[in-house]
Structure formats: C-alpha cells, structure tokens
C-alpha cells in the first residue's frame, strides 16, 4: 500500500478501500487462510457467514436508523449469496454520555427487522469507551445462515451474454444520508434500507442466476467495476435503463455526486443468463421493494475487457470507473 496513513478515502468503498483490504489480508493470504472477496463466506456444511460494522452520521436518517441498517446490511450480505438470514450477533461500542433510551431505540428497530426476517439474536457484546473515543456508537453485526441454493452464486460464475439487473432505483441511502449531513432536505427522499431476502429468495431456483451483490458503499458503479475486473469481461450499460429517482438526481446535481456511486442498502445488482432474465424480472417485480427492477446492461467479450462502459442518454459512449477517495461535495 502506497499511502502512509489511513484516511476517510480508504473507507468510502472505491479503489482505495480495495487497496486497504488487500493490504490487511496479506498476512492471511500468504498462509493460505484468507477469505474470498464476496459479500458473505460460504462455509463447509452449507452455511454462510458475514460481518459488517456501521458508523453512520446521523444515526437516525430519513427512512431508517443505525439498528435497522445493521440488520439489513448483514442479512443482505447473506441473501445475495443465496443464504437465509438465520442468526445474528451484535457488538456495540458506546461512547460514554450517549443516552440509554437512544441506544435501546436502535435495538428496538434492529429487533423488529430481525423478527420480520425470522432471524434470532444469538450472540452479542457491549463495550463503553471514554468520551471522544468513538462518535456516539459503532454497531457491528455478524450474521450466519443456511445456503438455500445448489449453485454457487459468485463473480466467477458470470459469463459472456449475461444480463445485468438492478432490483430497485439506485443511490437512495447515500443520497438520504448526504441530504441529512449537508442539511439539504429533499422532499420524499428516503433511504432504501430494507432486507432483500424476501425479494431474492424466490429467485434461487433459477438455473440462470449467476451472481448477486448488494450495492452498499461505492454504489452500483463500484460493484459492476469489480465484477468486470474479476471476470475480465466487458460490461456495457444503458444509462436510460438505470432507475434513478428524481429526488436522488436532484440531490446529486446540487452536490456534484454521481448516483452510480451513491450507497444503497436495499438494492442488489444481479447477473443472470439471458434465458432466465424475463423470469427474474417477473419474480422481482412481485416484491413491493422491486417495482423498479430493470435490465440495465449486458456482459460481452468486447474491448476494453475488464471495464464498464455506458451508452449515455444522448447516444454517446463513455467509461464508468470506480470512484476514488472520499466522495466530497464540489465547489460549484
């Protein structure tokens, strides 16, 4: 790793985050005991496991709070690998001074999301640290579930000709957080934070389902760039087909952000064989969360390989690259 210090850029989900993670995994990799780079690990015995830490500011945002977010984030990581969200562990690091009522309100929303999913809290840990050691609280979830598909859903299963889909309109979580953080309220803008298992589990019998990923930090753009790099295939997107809400577009216009790189917390990207594309869309659209599900592009063997390009609304062509560094609002 070239950087001499870890910065917020390393935490924002793009190229720098990938650099940091591979740097941190070196010690495990060289001993042959490192993980594969997917949302959840597939373990022997038909189980899947994932972990995710959350530090969001503000902790309560339009459309959710940090408790709900933690359960959704963990459960979605399992869901996109075809595993049911069965058990959850929660670790809390609390800053002294935070009110117990506030923390319990997040536990209440976490519990209600778990109940909705049939997920049981199996383990937990609580630490309190001196004022200033963390900002308010950090919540980390660890989820465990049973794999419910005979096929391995993975980047390595993506093939030339596959269709690329999203399950709903993109960028709503990132935009909702940015609107709260920069005090730019947008009417009707809510985080998409939601558990995906009910929408994705009916797809698991489809033979053409290759790979799924929830588009969290770094957004849809980052997921597709990672897939293109890993598969060494070319991904071509059609800008007009990518669902983006008016509210997300407005906020991104004001701050100079690209909806493609805004975080989602209830939206997955899918790669599906052409034969099963229509059926996938039909099933997805039965879920109340996935009314905007759409085919947004194709995988091909065109050049440049390992990269994503986009046919723009006006009929132009351009590349889609991974975001780099911390995503900051622009000057004008």
């Amino acid at each position: 790793m070239k950087d001499t210090a870890i910065t917020l850029g390393h935490g924002s989900g793009g190229r720098q985050s990938a650099d940091l993670v591979s740097h941190l995994l070196e010690s495990f990799g060289k001993r042959g005991i490192g993980p594969e780079m997917e949302d959840a690990a597939l373990l022997p015995g038909g189980y899947a496991m994932t972990m995710d830490g959350f530090t969001v500011s503000p902790r309560r945002f339009p459309g959710g709070d940090i408790g709900h977010l933690c359960v959704c984030g963990c459960a979605n990581d399992l869901a996109v690998r075809g595993a049911s969200p069965d058990f959850l562990g929660i670790s809390l690091v609390l800053e002294e001074g935070i009110s117990p009522e506030e923390v319990s309100s997040y536990m209440e929303s976490a519990a209600s999301t778990c109940a909705e999913l049939g997920m049981t809290l199996a383990a937990g840990d609580t630490k309190v640290v001196p004022s200033g050691a963390v900002e308010g609280m950090i919540i980390t979830g660890c989820a465990f579930g049973q794999i419910r598909t005979p096929r391995t859903l993975s980047m390595s299963s993506i093939r030339e000709g596959d269709a690329l889909l999203v399950t709903t309109s993109v960028g709503r979580h990132g935009a909702a957080i940015a609107s709260a953080r920069f005090n730019l309220p947008v009417e009707g803008l809510l985080s998409d934070c939601a558990p995906l298992w009910p929408a994705l589990s009916p797809l698991l019998h489809l033979e053409g389902l290759r790979c799924m990923r929830d588009c969290t930090r770094g957004g849809l753009g980052t997921v597709l760039c990672e897939w293109a790099e890993a598969s060494e295939l070319h991904f071509s997107l059609d800008e007009d087909s990518i669902p983006v809400s008016f509210q997300v577009k407005s906020l991104c216009d004001v701050l100079g952000f690209d909806p493609l790189y805004m975080a989602c917390e209830g939206c997955a990207a899918l790669a599906v064989a052409p034969s099963d594309t229509e059926e996938t869309l039909r099933i997805l659209r039965q879920s109340p969360l996935c009314g905007d599900a759409a085919v947004i592009g194709r995988v091909s063997s065109a050049e440049p390989k390992g990269m994503v390009s986009m046919r723009t609304s006006i009929g132009g062509e351009r590349l889609v690259d991974m975001p780099w560094g911390e995503i900051l609002p622009r000057i004008c």
């Binding site: 986009m310 723009t312 006006i314 009929g315 132009g316 062509e317």
Partner: peptide, 15 residues
C-alpha cells in the same frame, strides 16, 4: 469544469 464533466459524462464528444 462543470461543462467538461457534463461533456464527458454524457459522451458528447463521441457524437
């Protein structure tokens, strides 16, 4: 610069 980025993002040069 805002024009520059819009030109690139929309692929204007290519048309």
């Amino acid at each position: 610069g805002t024009h520059t980025v819009s030109v690139f993002r929309s692929g204007i040069r290519s048309i």
